[in-house]
Amino acid sequence: MIGPRGGLGARLLLALLLVVLVGGATLLVVALALAPGLFRTHVEQAVGPVSPGLAAHLDTAFARAVLISLAVAVTAATGVALAVGVFVTRRAVRPIEELSRAASAIAAGDYAVRVHEDGLGSELATLTRAFNRMASDLAGTERTRAEMLRDLAHELRTPLTSVRGYHEAIADGVLPADRATFARVDAELSRVERLVDDLDQVSRAEERLLDLRLQPVDAADLVAATADGARATASEAGVSVLTSPPEEPGTDPGAGVVLVDPDRLHEALANLVTNALRHTPAGGTVRLSSRTRGQVVELTVTDTGEGIAAEHLPRVLERFYRVDDGRSRTTGGSGIGLTITRALVEAHGGRVRIESAGPGHGTTAVLTLPRWQPPSPR
């Protein structure tokens, strides 16, 4: 039922009947008001003047003919309107009822329900496809939420279990309550604090609550600063951090310049470089570059490391997602660094994409940001 006073089908039928009745009544009024005079004029032109009695007889006969004709026509039209209306309304109401049932099922938690297209027109087809896409997105969101809660519980449980173990060991006298023991406990607590801070930062960025201090910055300078900050860590791991030569200045004063918060974007790039170093073996290379492509600027981090299989690429930016769960945990990754990068870049109106030709072929992360246009001089 659509609305408190009846279904959509009943309202469509009533509308058709009203059209037929109003049309018939209008035709009757017009015919009785104009047709007798016109008919009498044509008769007089054909046979000459007629007597008043004959004129009255002709008017009566014509009125009866019009009434009978209209009655038959309105009856037939009403029957056809009812038949067509029932057929059309049933065909039109059925997909709407199916959509209503599907929406109720989704509200009850059944995200697997889908609606079939009935081919009743582009409008309903568009609505059906949009509904199915929404249901699919909700199913993905619910799946991600469940995975995130499970992974978050695991991430918190691991350091807390260690802290409890140290506490019990100290209480039982197994471990001494000295500086070294408390340093290990402090390290586990710091891990929890970092995880909570990362989650808070992702949430604030996704909700556009970050305090961004935007200013025009040359993308090449950001790339160079990030590379310089990562070289010490990379050197310890035996990995080279390189930068591609900057673009030629050309004649465009805004080429390669983006309007960003330098600290936030540096953090996003640093996360990408850290992730690249984590998965690049000794002797490998991590290269940073920037280039202008039309109205956007691309900042790229490319490594010669492990690479990513095609089935993992769509999900590597999700919270806590790991391509190799065991190896990632041993190398210290929480699975949230790339998510922070995506949230920070999207807060600047940009996009992040991860590319890889497969395991053993390295990985490329591309940050796409709107190019800054300098104000025109007056």
Rank of each mutant, 00 (worst) to 15 (best):
I2L: 14
P4T: 13
P4Y: 07
R5K: 14
G6W: 14
A10N: 10
R11K: 15
G24K: 00
T26E: 12
L28C: 13
A33N: 01
P36S: 09
E44V: 15
Q45P: 00
S51C: 04
P52N: 07
A55W: 02
A65L: 15
I68Y: 10
S69A: 15
V72A: 15
V80S: 06
V80G: 03
F87C: 04
V88S: 07
R90E: 06
R91K: 15
V93W: 00
I96C: 01
L99T: 02
A102I: 02
G109A: 12
V113T: 15
G119I: 04
G119Y: 06
L120Y: 04
G121F: 05
R129P: 00
F131D: 01
N132W: 13
A135W: 00
L138I: 12
G140S: 13
T144C: 02
E147F: 03
D151W: 00
D151H: 05
H154A: 13
T158S: 02
L160F: 08
I170P: 07
A171G: 11
D172L: 15
P176R: 14
A177R: 15
A180W: 06
R184L: 13
V185Y: 03
D186Y: 06
V196H: 11
D197A: 13
D197T: 13
D198N: 09
L199C: 01
L199E: 00
Q201N: 11
Q201I: 03
V202G: 01
R204M: 03
R204A: 15
E206A: 11
L210H: 08
D211P: 12
L214F: 04
V217M: 05
D218S: 09
T226E: 15
A227R: 09
T233Q: 13
G238S: 14
G238I: 10
S240K: 09
V241A: 11
T243D: 04
P245Y: 05
E248L: 14
G250Q: 06
T251P: 05
D252G: 07
G254I: 00
D261W: 05
L265S: 04
E267A: 15
E267V: 08
L269G: 02
N271P: 00
V273T: 10
N275F: 01
T280K: 07
T280Y: 04
A282S: 15
A282K: 06
V286F: 12
L288C: 08
L288T: 08
T292E: 11
R293Y: 03
G294L: 10
G294H: 08
Q295R: 12
V296C: 04
T304Y: 07
T304M: 08
A309P: 01
E311G: 02
R319H: 07
F320M: 05
Y321N: 00
D324T: 09
R327A: 12
S328Y: 03
R329M: 08
T339Q: 09
T339G: 08
A343S: 15
A347Y: 03
E355A: 13
G358H: 06
G360P: 09
T363M: 06
A365K: 00
T368F: 02
L369H: 06
P370I: 08
P375W: 04
P375Q: 07
